[in-house]
Design a protein around this nucleic acid. Structure first.
Length: 456
RNA sequence: GUGGAUGUAGCUCAGUUGGUUAGAGCACUGGAUUGUGGUUCCAGGGGUCGUGGGUUCAAGUCCCAUCUUCCACCCCA
């Protein structure tokens, strides 16, 4: 029999105990914050019907959805000719009806519509689950990764946006990550496009603006020209880019430039309101209104958020926004929602790079009972049970191996105490308790062991 | 989907202008120490050199293809 390669699919990862413990730490910080704001957990399946997924994330997004081959004879109903002539994506549509979820927001919208009669609105939920994208892996980019979503749906109040800012500020403060929370508004972007005389080129405009931090103002303008923006439009953008000031100054600057009539004024008013809330809750220092911020996901209609960590170039670690009609496609119109998603895997990478993980107790076990044989086992097992009942993590070495080997095991697992029990101890009605750090060893009764270990 | 790197022991890596039997550290196993770990010393096991072709008297080394992983673009958490 040939030996199998113990490899895993591209872009997926195993996690060792140390890594898994650290990931749990991240999840627990995030979950703890979410629950303190009144959000409730839900879960949805790893796979969704492709009809649910397709067309929500743009063309690029559709390409990145993992599709699941139908069970059974998936080629039923596909002619030989079609098999050869159809494009791969068209063929996939014929032989796949399911796909792995691409994010948590769209499944959430589907969930809300399906369970609307059981939910009370506004509905605040959080969801911490993996998502999959058929992307090429690279720094900060995985094919399987966890998102930690918080959304509130069924309320247009800007207090929701403000609460999300507070949640983001708090999570990253607790994790010890220095961040800038950038925010913008789709209606402001649309207003800018209108002002530039290119309302139909909003997508191209946002795609170019989005690169500002990476390539600089000059290249953004060059890209606009390449994309067919005329010179007056480019010059107008240039005047925007050259402006610098505080959040409020930016808002009044744009207000003046754009005029106060259309949707841009709604956007600017909302932005001002959100920033006022932010100031009142003391999180405004982490927030930056940035009218060049754009987000690719098609469904955002209002505020958009993105969080970048200082000194980290592996992409944003949190992002989201308001979507006015995601539930409409599932038959429940006019339900606005807003939410953000924390990228747990990127947060992990940032913490690893900055060394900000708390020192973890890498030993969960407090005491190891060495195994001297059957008689000795019967003697100590009641004590093991007693310690465990009192919340002391205790384990018994399962094999009657050499003492040296058992000691090594305790050492490598960083177990602070070892109990040795041989014939001598049994005859005296005691055990030997060894402190692995000091090396000191004393003979004590069961009661004394319990006393010294349970207290801790 | 496009471009650039990479691959030698479980891990991190040496390996000369092609030249005999491919090395080190860590890890692992055994011993010094048959009831005592973390330090030390001694010994040992473990590699079809990513895979498949080609050039050559001779390939880990040169050529081609393919796969893997990583990095960048695109897009995103």
């Amino acid at each position: 029999m040939s030996v199998l390669n113990p490899s895993i699919p591209k872009g997926t990862r195993d996690f060792t105990p140390v890594e898994a413990i650290r990931r749990k730490y991240i999840f627990s910080v995030i979950e703890n914050v979410f629950t303190r704001y009144g959000y409730l957990p839900i879960e949805t399946p790893a796979m969704e019907n492709l009809t649910t997924l397709l067309g929500k994330y743009g063309d690029e997004g559709d390409r990145l959805i993992f599709k699941i081959l139908d069970s059974g004879n998936f080629l039923t109903g596909v002619t030989e000719e079609e098999r050869l002539s159809l494009t791969p994506s068209k063929l996939a549509g014929r032989i796949c009806e399911k796909g792995l979820r691409y994010d948590l927001t769209v499944p959430f919208a589907r969930f809300v519509v399906r369970h609307r009669n059981k939910l009370s609105f506004p509905f605040k939920r959080y969801q911490i689950q993996p998502v999959w994208r058929a992307d090429r892996p690279q720094k900060g980019r995985y094919r399987e990764f966890y998102q930690c979503d918080v959304d509130v749906i069924g309320s247009r109040s800007l207090l929701n946006e403000a609460e999300l800012l507070m949640i983001m500020e708090e999570v990253f403060r607790l994790l010890g990550i220095k961040v800038v929370i950038k925010l913008n508004h789709r209606k402001i972007l649309a207003g800018i496009a209108e002002y530039m005389g290119v309302p139909d080129k909003l997508t191209g405009l946002t795609q170019a603006l989005d690169k500002r931090n990476k390539i600089g103002d000059e290249k953004v303008l060059a890209e606009l020209r390449e994309r067919g923006f005329d010179e007056p439009a480019v010059r107008k953008m240039e005047s925007f880019l050259s402006f610098s000031g505080s959040n409020n100054e930016k808002i009044s600057f744009l207000s003046e430039k754009l005029g106060n009539t259309g949707q841009e004024q709604t956007g600017l008013d909302e932005m001002a309101k959100i920033l006022t809330y932010a100031a009142e809750t003391g999180v405004d220092k982490s927030c930056e209104f940035d009218f060049t911020l754009a987000r690719g996901l098609d469904y955002y209609t209002g505020t958009i958020f993105e969080v970048v960590a200082a000194g980290w170039d592996g992409g944003s670690i949190c992002g989201g926004g308001r979507y006015d009609d995601l539930t409409g496609i599932f038959g429940l119109p006019d339900v606005s929602g807003v939410g953000v998603s924390f990228g747990a895997d990127r947060i992990y990478d940032v913490l690893a790079q900055t060394g900000k993980f708390p020192p973890l107790q890498d030993s969960s076990t407090q005491v190891l009972f060495l195994n001297f044989g059957e008689k000795e086992l019967s003697y100590i097992l009641p004590l093991v049970r007693k310690l465990r009942d009192h919340n002391v993590a205790a384990e018994v070495y399962p094999d009657q191996a050499k003492i040296k080997k058992q000691m090594q095991y305790a050492n490598q697992k960083n177990i602070p105490f070892v109990i040795l029990t041989g014939e001598e101890e049994m005859s005296q009605g005691v055990v030997s308790l060894k402190n692995m750090e000091t090396g000191r060893q004393i003979r004590v009764t069961f009661e004394e062991v319990a006393d010294s270990l349970i207290k801790k």
